[in-house]
Every structure is written in structure tokens, then in C-alpha cells.
Design a protein around this nucleic acid. Structure first.
Lengths: 267, 267
DNA sequence: GTCTTAATAG
DNA sequence: CTATTAAGAC
């Protein structure tokens, strides 16, 4: 173990269907801790043996059935595993655990609801739930930000103009509507979370972590969005360095539509 | 083209899922004509381009949707393609075509219904249909046997004691019940078809062409059955030589539960 | 487009 | 156990 702790967050879109891609990712990035979203597997069927074989001996799981599901795989010990219900939505969208890295630091794997197709809370229950989830983060994050903490995962929101391939064309598309981006930015700013990716690659740099499966938008037209995020609490933010987006993973055989995002934490 | 025409019959259990195994088979056996069953694909989605690339430029298809389906792939011209409805059961279970091999010879690819689980015509509609299909072969085969002809395929019946791993234990198991074996043997004998596999490997030699996916019966316990057959009309039988069962195919990665059966026809 | 589950078939 | 289809989710 060196003097940096390498953390990866990745919406892997089924850990079972992409267990080999998980291996390719670890070979490439050598992470100490991996925060996964959309594992799509109940805890009992999670491929723990494979993970152990690959050195991830410490795990925190929160999966249930074919949808959603989050997990933390770690080479360093995980303490005080916790599952939080955010915004009253009980759907395996959060798990966290504490690592000892220059003192305790809590790592949260977060999976915000996607929100369906129509950005209308009246007609689209899923969109309403998504907003409720982000509203729920207002209270939830208030206590989380008080620790040395990282919140990382698929937020399903691209908050800034350079987080999408076309700000104008996506203003009415779920993930980039003001109803979402305003709420998310309010959570972040009011609590003091540092969006470390944007800190190191400030606007108007384009940063994307997701490219749709539908339409062959990748890599040609590059119609991506930055849906995956790493937030650091103020007390930890200065130790977070070397942010990276593993863009090439979108081109792998049988790729996830999301790519891994990496950060390294100094001790 | 040499002086023998190599014919293979194979229940491939999805041509799309096993297109690579089809290639392995052809590399191994170098067939001129392949009679397939359980192709599980509509004609429009049949991988014709791949077949053409591999030299099978002449095809006769009868598939419709996710189940059943038969086909003939050939390196030599196919004439007078015909689809017969046998026993009134219209389920893509037959296709035939004529090759010119020392005169015209009709090759039939046949897929007899499996028959479900309970050997009871009262409670099991599928079993009733299976018996109706074999009864239908009585009339159908009468005209077929008048030509120089091969009828090959998955008959889903193991007619003789040495066609199953335990005659006694399978007497009440569909594929080896007297209701089936008596009917099939009656069709064969009354019309004069030559079961060329049994002619060359007479009882009590064990010959199996199928090993179940359920339970790991292969290769250890060798609980197989001879469900796939090659029958020759009297006028052609003497030209049929070098029967072989490609047993090793059951051990291939992602194998079909049936293995290819080969015959060579002299000109 | 790419997964999941479930039902259905073999 | 190994396929298929269909629905639903993302």
C-alpha cells in the first residue's frame, strides 16, 4: 500500500454480466476501494469469491434483485458499514463504510434514481421520486458532510453546462433539467461538498462519464453526460488528487454505459 | 468434391447461440450437407451470410420464432425444396430437398416433437401430439420411402434397448416408452427404411447421441440416449457408409445436448 | 442497446 | 442446464 488510497466509482450496470470488465478496470487503475452502483444482484448472489481472489477482501453490499444495488469492494478494512434510506426511498441506493486513512474517512456509494423519461412530477412518478431523493440529500448530507467523507456514485444528474454535450438541447431532458441541477447544486453548495472533478477540470472543460447505449453516440458524436461524481467533504477535499475518468472503458467489449471515475487520497 | 457425399444431422439447439460450434463441427467433419434441427430462428434471422462464407451456398429453411425450426445447409445444389406437415402438426418440423448424387436423392431434416414430461395422452397434450406425429409418419413416409431418400434428424425416440443407458429405468420415460418405440419401429419396418447407424453398429452396442443438460450426466455416468437417427430408403441404403457419431461435441464449450451424426454416401 | 426477471420449452 | 420471448428498467 502506497501513500495514496485509490478510489474508483463506477456504475457497472450488472456486476455479474461485467465481472471480467471489473477485472480489466482493476488491472488498469489498481484501486484500493471500488464504489459500485447498479450491481443488479441480491447480496447472496454477489460474486464475492471472485472479489476475494482479486484482493478485495472487505465488502459492503446493498443489493436486492434485478435493479439498483450498490456495493463497496476494498483491499483495506471497512468499518461501520451503514445503509441509509434517503428521501424515504428504500431501493438499495446507498451503502457506506469507514476506512482508516490518516484517520477515519467514510466512503459513500450513492445511486440516485434515474427518473424516467418525462420531466413532469404530475405524470411521472419516477421523476417525482428522483426529486424527492435529491431533496432527501439535503437533510442526509448535512450529517454526512460533518465527517471526513467522500460521496461518490451515479447521481444521474449532470449539473453544469459543460457536463452535457449540449446544454440547450438537454434543458428539458431528465438529468439536466433545472429542477434537478438546481436541487443538486443547492445540496452541494449549502453543505460545502467539493466536486473534486470540477475542481480539477473547471468549466468550460467538457467532462463526461456516460454515453447512451441507444444511438451509436460513442465515440463519434461524443454525446455524453457527466452523471457520475465524486464529492469530498471540506475536511478531506485537500487530500484528494489525481482525478481521472477512464473514458476508454466505454469502448470495451460489452461495456457499461458509464465509465469509472478515479480519485486518489493522500494519507 | 470427392466420391462420397458427407451428410451430418444435428440438433444444434439454436443456430444463433452455436454458430461457432457449427464451424467447429464443419472443420472436424467437412460435411457437404448439414441437416439441422431446433434452429430456433425465423428464416429472416437465419445467419445465411456466415453460412455462405463457410461454403454452404445452398439452403432450405423452415423456422418460425423461438422454438423448433429445421434447416438444410449444403455445398452442393439443392432442388425442389419441400416443407411437409406431418400428423397435422404445423410447427416447422420438416424440410427436405433433392441433391443430385448418382441420380436424385431427397434429404429430409426431421424434428419429432419432444413430448413433454408425463407419458400420458390424457393429461399431456404434448405427448399426444408426439404420438400423432409418429402416426402421421406412417402415411408420410410411405411416399417418401419410394424415392432415393435419407430421413435424418432428431426423432426424440430411442427405439432399442441399447439406445438408452438403462432400458428398464427408461421404459416409462418419454423417448423410450413402448407407445413411442413400437410406433417408430412400425413406421421404419413397415416401410423398409434402413436405420444405418444400427445396421453398422448392431445391438447390443451402446450408441448415444444425446446427454441431458440437467444433472451432470456427461461424460462420467454416460446416461445417454440415441435420439438422433439416419434412415435410408432401400434404394439408397447400400450406398451409405462410414457412419459416425461425433461424441466429443458434447464436451465442447457451450455444447448442444445433442451431438452430430455423420454418414457418407457413395456416388 | 443492454441488462434483469419471468414464463415456456427442451 | 440451456435456450427462447416478453416485459420493464435504465
Amino acid at each position: 500500500m502506497s501513500d495514496t488510497l485509490t478510489i474508483v466509482t463506477w456504475n457497472i450496470n450488472s456486476i455479474r454480466a461485467r465481472i471480467d470488465l471489473f477485472g480489466m478496470m482493476t488491472k488498469k487503475l489498481r484501486p484500493d476501494v471500488v464504489l459500485l452502483q447498479e450491481t443488479r444482484v441480491t447480496d447472496g448472489s454477489f460474486p464475492l469469491k471472485t472479489m476475494h481472489r482479486r484482493g478485495f477482501k472487505h465488502t459492503a453490499l446493498n443489493g436486492r434483485g434485478g435493479h439498483h444495488g450498490v456495493a463497496i469492494l476494498s483491499k483495506v478494512p471497512l468499518d461501520d458499514v451503514r445503509i441509509d434510506i434517503i428521501g424515504g426511498i428504500d431501493q438499495s441506493r446507498h451503502v457506506s463504510a469507514v476506512v482508516d486513512w490518516g484517520g477515519p474517512a467514510r466512503l459513500h456509494s450513492l445511486y440516485v434514481p434515474s427518473g424516467g423519461d418525462e420531466p413532469d412530477v404530475e405524470t411521472n412518478e419516477k421523476f417525482r421520486q428522483k426529486l424527492e431523493f435529491v431533496d432527501g440529500m439535503l437533510e442526509w448530507g448535512q450529517s454526512a458532510v460533518g465527517e471526513r467523507a467522500i460521496v461518490a456514485g451515479d447521481f444521474n444528474i449532470a449539473p453544469y453546462p459543460s457536463d452535457v454535450w449540449s446544454h440547450r438541447q438537454l434543458l428539458d431532458v431528465i438529468s439536466h433539467t433545472p429542477a434537478e441541477t438546481d436541487r443538486l447544486e443547492n445540496v452541494r453548495a449549502s453543505q460545502g461538498w467539493v466536486d473534486v472533478v470540477r475542481r480539477d477540470r473547471p468549466e468550460p472543460q467538457e467532462v463526461y462519464t456516460w454515453w447512451s447505449y441507444r444511438n451509436k453516440t460513442w465515440p463519434g458524436s461524443n454525446r455524453g453526460r457527466r452523471l457520475d461524481h465524486i464529492w469530498a467533504s471540506p475536511s478531506l477535499a485537500d487530500s484528494v488528487r489525481e482525478i481521472d475518468v477512464l473514458r476508454e472503458a466505454r469502448g470495451w467489449e460489452k461495456a457499461s454505459d458509464h465509465v469509472p471515475v478515479v480519485a486518489r487520497i493522500e494519507r
